[in-house]
């Protein structure tokens, strides 16, 4: 894993993560003033874009011109929504009245990561970018992906959960992909695995941010 923050000078904060062959870049813009009427809390938005030649994960959803500038397709929309949901609890939006905080995610390359793994890296990378932007947050959100294996079935489900490790491991995002039946025992075990992995990521981030 390779991490770098502060790559983009024009943004308030940015982070760049390479994990295997998955490359994600996140820029945070804000708090920026808004035009128009007063709002008490900052508004928060996430926009995720794949570069047009990133086809893994996006392939089945992308039917636009490969080199055009399309709006967000459904998969980008889903990732954006997840990232937004996961990061919202960590932000102190009431500290930024009459402003917006916008996160722009660019997926630069991805060959082997599944949708959930990719989303996980995007969440992790966005957290780093938020730290770099010096926007006030309650905790750094990190996540982990666990695969639920079924002995009888070859179709494995994947589970992504994002946590705030220093706030009692509060779960801030949760996404299961796959058609597997779940019971309490499996789910507990899965969440534990996710949490362990999230903590590993968090430890790495702590090391990165303090050196």
């Amino acid at each position: 894993m390779f991490l770098k923050t502060g790559l983009v000078d024009t943004a308030s904060g940015s982070a760049y993560v390479e994990a295997d062959d998955c490359i994600v870049q996140v820029s945070v813009y804000g708090p920026r003033p808004i035009r128009g009427s007063f709002i008490e809390k900052a508004s928060f938005s996430v926009e995720c874009k794949f570069l047009p030649y990133v086809t893994k994960v996006a392939a089945e959803h992308q039917n636009t011109n490969p080199n055009g500038k399309p709006g967000m397709n459904s998969i980008e929309q889903r990732i954006s929504t997840y990232v937004e949901t996961a990061l919202l609890p960590c932000l102190l939006l009431e500290n930024y009245p009459k402003s917006t905080i916008d996160i722009y995610v660019t997926v630069i390359a991805n060959k082997s990561a599944s949708l959930l793994e990719l989303t996980n890296w995007i969440v992790n990378c966005s957290s780093l970018a938020l730290v770099d932007s010096a926007i006030e947050i309650k905790d750094i959100v990190t996540g982990g992906v666990a695969t639920i294996e079924d002995e009888n079935d070859s179709k494995n489900s994947q589970c992504l959960a994002s946590f705030m490790n220093l706030r009692n491991n509060e779960i801030v995002g949760f996404w299961i992909d796959g058609g597997q039946e779940l019971n309490e025992k499996v789910l507990t075990k899965t969440l534990e695995t996710c949490q362990e992995r999230a903590q590993v990521v968090r430890r790495n981030f702590n090391g990165f941010l303090t050196t």
Binding site: Y53, V54, I108, K111
Partner: peptide, 22 residues
């Protein structure tokens, strides 16, 4: 560095950095 996808063929790619611009 960007020749990573298998669907749409990326036949050539480059990353150029100059100052802080990439």
């Amino acid at each position: 560095a960007l020749n990573t996808s298998d669907g749409i063929p990326v036949v050539g790619s480059s990353i150029v950095k100059s100052g802080s611009t990439t």
